[in-house]
Structures are given as C-alpha cells and as structure tokens.
Design a protein around this nucleic acid. Structure first.
Lengths: 233, 233
DNA sequence: TAAAAATTTTGTTTTAAAACATAGTTATAT
DNA sequence: ATATAACTATGTTTTAAAACAAAATTTTTA
C-alpha cells in the first residue's frame, strides 16, 4: 500500500457534494479525519489483496479499477471520475481489495478515515440508504456488463466500451472527442479483448467512419451507428 | 408479474433468521406485512423489466436468477438457496428487475411489502449496515465471476460452476452427490457455454474420473482435481 | 400405453478470436 | 541528439468454441 502522509487538504470542499445528506456538524467531523494526496499518472492507489484503510474519494483526475486475470490479462472493472468514491466495495464488505486502482492521469484523492466514516454511517440512515442504493445500482451494471462482455462479439464489445467512456467522461468542447485518453492496452482491457483486436477493430470503425482516430484521441463521428454496433452484439 | 395472493403464512419463522438484527416488535411488524406463496418447479417468480413490489425471501427450494442475453442465450447470474433474499437488488436500486427468477424445484417464497420493509430499514441502522455489507460482498463475487467467465476456458468454467453448485447447495448425505439437479441447459447457462460443450466437457470430466454422472445427478469423485482444473483456467 | 415433446448425446464444419511474429512509431531518458 | 523502451500497427497461423446436424434417450401428456 502507498504511504499516505497527511497533507493540508484543499479539496474537501469538492468532495462535499458526495455527502449532501450530511449536516454541517457531520461534514466538519469528516473533514478532520481526511487526508488529501496527489497521485501521478500510472501510479497505483491500491492493489488487489491490500486492506482498505479508509474511504477514498477521487477529487480530480481519472482512475481505473482493474483485476488481474489469467496469464496477467487485465480486466478493467470500472472507470472512476471526479467527484466519486473508489475502493468502497472492499471497505463495506470488510474484505481486502479484490481489484487494484491506478491513476489514468495525474489525480487528487482524499482519504477519510475508516472509523470516522463508519461512525457517521451508523448514525445517519440517509447516508446508509444512499449507499445501499448506489451499491445496488452498481451491482446491476456489473451483472449486465458481465453478460455483454461474455456474449457480444469483438465489434460489439469495443463499441460498448467507447459508449462507456463517453458516458463516464463525456466529450471535449468540440462535442465529439472523448474526454479520456486511454492507451490501446487499456481500451482492450476495458473491452475484454487482446491489444491487437482492439487496434484492428478501432481501425475498422475508422474506415466505416464511425470514429476518427488521432493517436489516443478518439472522435465519435457517428454515434447512432456506434450504438447500433453495440446493440447488435 | 405473478399474481401474489395473500395466503396464511407458515414460513415467517423460517425467514426470521435473515433478520437477526431486528427486535421482536420490528419482526412482528414485518410478519403482518408478509405473504407466503408456493411456486412450482420452472415457475417464473419475476421477469426482467417488471417492478419489484416487495422484498422476496426464499423459504424453501432453489431458485435461479438469470439474464436473457443475445439470441436468447441465457446467463445464470446467481443461484439462491433458502433461507435468503431474492430480487432485492432492483428493490434497493429503485429500478425494475434487470434479471428474472425461476424456481429450479418446488419452492416457497415470502414477500414482505416494500413500504413496510423500508420503514423498518430507515429506523434500524444495523439492518442497513448488514445490507450494505452483503451488497458489497455480492458485488465482489459479481466482478470476480465476470473475469473468470470471460477469461477461463470451457473446462475451467465448467469446473468452477460445479464448485459454485457445491458451495451453494452442498452435498447429499453421501458427501459426494451435488445436492442440486440442474438440466444440462442450466449448467451451460451457469458456465457461459453452449449446451453441447457443457455435456461434452462433463463427459470428459467423467472419463478423467473427476465426476460420476447419472442423469442429472453429479457426484464429485476428485475434488482436488476439480479445483485444479478450475484454478488453471 | 402410445405418441409427442423435450432433453441429452455425439459427430462434423465453420468461425471468431487468440497467439504469434515483426515492423513502424512515438515517447522517455541519458 | 541518440539510444532505449514503450506503444501502436498489421499480417499470418492456430485454436477453442460456436454452429449445425442428426440420433438416441428420457419425460410428459393425451
């Protein structure tokens, strides 16, 4: 596990949005048990097997949550965006992490101490209900994604992944460039396919004028067609 | 949705075990907002797209939770055993069902009215925490299973499914016969493969003396080897 | 009990995707 | 500025699993 040194925190205000159901006193309390850390691109925030020490909030940046599969083949379970939680599953299940988290770009995270957080959680049932709802929603995503990752073909999976990227990170100002610059490797891990297939299929999409590619920059030219490819499987 | 008629309930005592954190008053309250229903083998309890009306508890029997995939290909998401909840994900996410539930054998379910349950939930933070924990645990399973279903080969997937069956339903008195009699079709849906492959691979396992087959009855002859096949992928 | 339906079984063919190989390109560090 | 490493790209071969087909068996029902 990374060595989390306490630093002066400039970002608690940002993550407040995640705790809209708390009152000022509770917010104040959490802010005193909070540490902020800058993580560099490609830096690992936590690793599979480690023990959670607190509730991690992503304040700025982008993070991938991924699992190591067979023969070192990686699968991206989830992409996190600010402002949002990461690593909460293991915390709530009282387990060690089952996945790892890595910054996709320079990011800022806040860590709220475990005990402090649970103290608030025990008292505030609105917060509990909110967490129950979001865990249940995520479980739904996970189940659905499992079906598509196993049943869709390469084209359908890649198309879906691009849509997931758009859903998660949105577009740049031009309204067509996906606002996330993943490596082909990461696109492959997200789509559950080999590197080669991700590259090849992306190239196909370009030839079909569904996307335009410029290095890691991907522009969606024909959203409707992309959705059709995804839906077709 | 099935027409849930109120019936005299003989089974609330059984499902009480699920609510160990509630006091007698709360239990009493829930028991008055509870209906018990017998469902026959192959009967559908709820379908993808329907709206949850309450918290369903499986009191007796076995139930599969499955999703319809592409080209009607079914994937079993989870197997439920008594005593346990089913259909709670959609209820907590405040969504319609994303999966369907079908009885694998004659079963008894109890349905606790939605509003009554949430009323108790809002007041009892231990119950909330318990639910948070179990949702988080299940999310972990779901993520892990997704990796194995996509990355393991047919043999590994089938071996894992047999282990899941054992984990969930255990053995008969002989200590080797899996205490669940699924169709080959269901074994295939659980292992994310075609019918033919499930049958063929099961036959292979028999030839390798890992299992013994007698119709739907499956005996595990060599657990260690089965685990090895599963771990190898 | 016979007929029909559903399920299980086995063999063959086809195909999608992985594995492999190798070259070109871009980024990083010295 | 040049060397090294990391990433991207593309072609070829191999392989695992799906698709297809058709028979045998079991279960259901009329």
């Amino acid at each position: 596990m990374r060595d989390y040194k306490q630093k002066i925190c400039y970002c608690f205000d940002k993550i407040k949005a995640l705790f809209s159901v708390l009152n000022n006193e509770e917010l104040e309390f959490l802010s005193h048990h909070n540490a902020c850390i800058q993580v560099k691109k490609n830096e690992i925030i936590y690793k599979e097997g480690e023990r959670p020490t607190g509730l991690i909030c992503l304040s700025e940046g982008k993070v991938k949550i991924y699992k190591e599969g067979f023969g070192g083949r990686e699968q991206i379970v989830r992409l996190a965006k600010p402002v949002g939680f990461i690593g909460y599953r293991a915390l709530f299940a009282e387990e060690n992490y089952l996945a790892s988290a890595m910054a996709l770009e320079n990011s800022v995270i806040c860590i709220i101490e475990k005990d402090a957080f649970f103290e608030v959680l025990r008292k505030n049932s609105s917060l509990s209900l909110q967490i129950i709802k979001s865990l249940a929603t995520e479980l739904g995503f996970s189940n659905s994604r499992c079906v598509t990752l196993t049943q869709k073909h390469v084209r359908g999976r890649l198309a879906e992944s691009l849509l997931v990227l758009v859903d998660t990170y949105g577009f740049e100002e031009d309204g067509m460039t996906i606002s996330a610059y993943l490596s082909r490797e990461d696109i492959a891990s997200l789509s559950n396919m080999t590197n080669s297939n991700a590259i090849r299929t992306l190239r196909q999409f370009e030839q079909e004028q569904v996307v335009a590619i410029e290095g890691r920059k991907i522009k969606i030219l024909n959203m409707a067609k992309l959705e059709r490819i995804s839906d077709l499987g």
